[in-house]
Design a protein around this nucleic acid. Structure first.
Lengths: 161, 161
DNA sequence: TGCCAACAGTTGAAAATTCAACATTTTCCC
DNA sequence: GGGAAAATGTTGAATTTTCAACTGTTGGCA
């Protein structure tokens, strides 16, 4: 769409030019990200289904795999879940004997999460499933595109947070 | 990690070199996408909060805004929701008098969704909120990065689906 | 035509997520 | 030190999402 204005001399000039078609939802970064995220998640999920583990639990296990003992707050942040959701998911994982809670001795409000042996073994198996998926993406999408995309996503993440 | 072997002459040589640190979760495209998606969604959500509309309903409204009458199946796909979830969300939106169902005369299994006047008005208001958010992203993240990222996401989406 | 598989959408029960409120512990600061 | 405010995590109720099973309709084809 063009936007006009007439000058003092009576001439008509274009002062603005909006995109020809009205913005479709697929022009929005928010939508493209959601779409891409869903697609990739779907693939990852189908890989992890072999072990019957949801993507969110994969994230928990990966984060805890450094053996460091993360607080619930850290974890919630790292696995992209809010606190009550994480609490309940951790409850389930405790029932499944994958993780356990330890009270932080230096701050008794805090709880430090750890992997059990069973959790470690599962984490290792999942890790190789996820690596394989990553390799598949690189295969079909290209090494260059993949690393460029990762670079852009990282910088978007810190510009947005 | 380095992997060694000793030669017949008793010398030790490096035969392989694996990446220095074991793969962290933040190396995974799946994780970066989830993170970026959450961050951008958070921003969009806080914009839409003004109208009290969740992001998924924004998507529904945007898709229907073309006035064409979409089937539930199309919609579910477009708004990235599975069928039963969409059915129930549409039920809510019908209660709020934002949308209505019409049976497709040419295929009586199908339902065509339309925006009510109220829905159209809301869609228009939301649209400008979302445009503003998009503009903010471009502002802080850069025009070039944004369009490059969109391009990569689009191509990822079709390579993955 | 008449049958049957596939398709479109919905439903009800079960599971997961969210919101607000809560308990406990620590930090701040007077 | 003492008391208010902030931080950490959990809880219970309400909402939302998911899964499997279901109804109704269409399309293929014998």
């Amino acid at each position: 769409m063009l936007i006009f204005r007439s000058t003092a001399q009576g001439k008509v000039i274009i002062v603005a030019k909006t995109p020809a078609r009205k913005p479709a939802i697929s022009d929005h970064l928010a939508y493209l990200l959601a779409q891409a995220n869903r697609e990739i998640n779907r693939h990852l999920e189908s890989r992890l289904r072999k072990e019957g583990v949801p993507v969110e639990q994969w994230r928990v296990l990966m984060i805890l795999a450094d053996g460091k003992g993360h607080s619930m707050g850290d974890l919630a942040n790292a696995v992209l879940l809010n606190h009550p959701t994480l609490t309940k998911m951790v409850d389930r994982m405790v029932s499944d004997a994958l993780v356990y809670r330890v009270q932080d001795p230096s701050d008794r409000r805090r709880v430090l999460m750890h992997l059990s042996d069973r959790g470690k073994a599962l984490a290792k198996r999942l890790s190789s499933l996820a690596e394989r998926q990553e390799a598949d993406i690189i295969q079909s999408y290209g090494n260059k595109s993949t690393s460029e995309l990762k670079r852009l996503l990282e910088s978007l993440i810190d510009s947005a947070s």
